[in-house]
Write a protein that binds this DNA or RNA. Structure first.
Lengths: 353, 353
DNA sequence: CACGTTCATCAAAACGTTTTGACGAATTGG
DNA sequence: CCAATTCGTCAAAACGTTTTGATGAACGTG
């Protein structure tokens, strides 16, 4: 590896002159700078980030803690976040927590010892997070993505609004018996989506003599949950051609669940959407390839990534400026993005109406 | 941040003693070591990897250059690679090259200046790769994943064998007019899969009076390519109910293309598999959720990741041991994994047979 | 022309580690 | 009981940068 010393001797100047010429931190005469740059180009010099980081106390790297890259929503978010970070000169260290608290703690250690400037954190789980708390205590800037956590800066979407849009669509089509397939029951996103759905259904049918029936099942953000639960319901007589008062629509808390449900419905030869409508959440690319194509709520992954990175870098800058201040109780900004319902083939008017 | 000095003074020993106590590099008496460990625990000391890297010339970090995380095959691979790397104490720096040569070069710079110990490289594109060459010249260990590149260590699957298995399945079911939807024409994976398919078809029908007709289209590893090409073919009269001698099966070079094709076939109301069989490649999780579920060739992502990391770390160790040797012409080991055909609903006997 | 400025450059310290040569103290062997 | 060895520890150098106080040369000013 060629170092700054090599450049210095090649250009016949001191090490500090090279540093100044490259950083612009102090004025350097034009001819000298030219000689330095020529030497840099000739020797293919590349500053060692480790050494830079050691003295500057800043590494321009971010830790990305994501529960499960196999979930396309997370991989889409990871991609968008990495692109945004790179545009701003930050590198991303990828960490697959697999929803495992121990791994999370482990990764946090690694990231801290690697001196990352900030953390992008996807909870993906509902347990009040020890690793997150530890990070916050270490005074390292953290932005939580996708979930809202009190007193921690975060970026997420209007899950209640998304649920409401689904409810309004379904209510307008006469659906009032609905099966909701949630993820983990304690997850705020799941609860919020359900809340929006419920409130819009009740207010739509309020004053009419139609009763809203909302059947709830909780599990995990996985296709297998949707698949198995639909089959379970059929076995229990809640769903299927023999069922009386079967739900006329299924709302899944995310697209993966919906995809699993779709498969099960197919196996049960329940026609979607004629006999049962189906709605997902996330707006995965795949949802437009299924048959029927899936009605879903589109998450603006690019925007989320954009504001998450922006928020995080802001906080990093602040914490750099005030390195030795008292840890003043700072506000925890939270950015909420709107979502939009994408209506596709999987939704139709409630049968018998 | 608490440093090794803090530990030293807290334990009442010298800095080097702390270092030795922690690394085990030199014997330290039991009582002293205990005092050191107690201080470490009490102060929450975490060695600074930057400083460690600076002196040890090794960072225990790998660069992962991946073309497109939105492609689930790549995100699955990224996940598996990260998990394997983490198990071996390595961190992964994620880089989304987006198939853009300039971004690739850019990332290579970043990774080198971050002193990564090695590179995991997914070509994803066919251009003889400048960035890769540059990396190799820099003497940094590289393992190419998913494509075979001459003289560069790599891990990939038996694409020819995969193609052959598809061909054998289809030939056995009487398919001899087949549409092949490739990715980029110059991609070795595409060519290999095609080669396997072609050879098995020819040898199956060799000696019979049935002619093999293989229709080829090339594009990109994207769902949109499959979707549009099927529609194009229909418009050209090659596909559809009006077509004479329409292919009875479509083989896509990967699952994304197959999924796009499936959607288009549906829109054209061509029954899969009754009128047209469909086969993909990769074994994405989604392929079992489609209707009909997709016959595909399963890639062993975990195994690929495992051997890629192993190969890379081997090379890292070698290059560390021989740091100042002549750059001896080393062999470029290549690991090939077998693939297995997963037969699902999307394939049936050729119509009219 | 002497004086204070500005300008360009240099030398040295610092960042947090690991590594290694050195040095007393304790232990062993004859 | 003395020499030789081992043991435990320390101090200092090194890694590749940035930062900063110092220094000398050129310059404008009165």
């Amino acid at each position: 590896m060629t170092t700054i010393k090599d450049i210095a001797s090649a250009a016949g100047v001191s090490v500090s002159t090279v540093s100044h010429a490259l950083s612009g931190n102090r004025p350097i005469s034009e001819p000298t700078r030219a000689r330095v740059l020529a030497a840099v180009a000739a020797l293919g010099y590349r500053p060692n980030k480790l050494a830079q980081g050691l003295v500057s106390k800043t590494t321009r790297s971010l830790g990305l803690l994501v529960p499960d890259l196999a979930n396309p929503f997370f991989s889409a978010m990871a991609e968008a976040l990495e692109v945004q970070a790179h545009e701003r000169g930050y590198s991303v260290i990828l960490c697959n927590t697999n929803l495992d608290a121990e791994r999370e703690a482990d990764y946090l250690d690694v990231l801290l010892s690697r001196q990352v400037d900030g953390l992008l954190y996807f909870p993906g789980t509902s347990v009040p997070n020890r690793a997150l708390q530890a990070a916050l205590e270490k005074q390292i800037p953290v932005v939580v993505v996708d979930e809202q956590i009190a007193h921690v800066p975060g970026v997420f979407v209007d899950n209640v609004g998304g649920g409401r849009q689904i409810g309004e669509l379904l209510a307008g089509l006469g659906h009032h018996r609905i099966l909701f397939l949630g993820g983990a029951e304690a997850l705020p996103t799941v609860q919020d989506r359900l809340r929006g759905l419920r409130s819009s259904l009740y207010s739509a049918f309020n004053g009419t003599d139609t009763a809203v029936e909302l059947l709830l099942r909780f599990g995990a953000y996985r296709a297998s949950f949707g698949y198995e639960t639909v089959h379970d319901c059929a076995r229990e007589g809640l769903l299927g051609h023999a069922a009386v008062d079967a739900p006329t629509a299924i709302v899944a808390a995310n697209d993966l669940i919906a995809l699993g449900a779709l498969r099960a419905l197919r196996e049960l030869s329940i026609q979607v959407p004629q006999e049962c409508s189906l709605v997902g959440f996330d707006g995965l690319e795949f949802t437009m390839l299924t048959t029927p194509s899936l009605t879903t709520v589109q998450q603006p992954t690019g925007l989320i990534a954009n504001s998450a990175i922006e928020l995080l870098i802001d906080r990093i800058d602040v914490s750099l400026d005030h390195r030795d201040d008292y840890p003043a109780a700072r506000l925890a900004p939270q950015v909420v993005h709107p979502v939009s319902l994408v209506v596709r083939e999987s939704v139709a008017a409630a049968p018998g109406r």
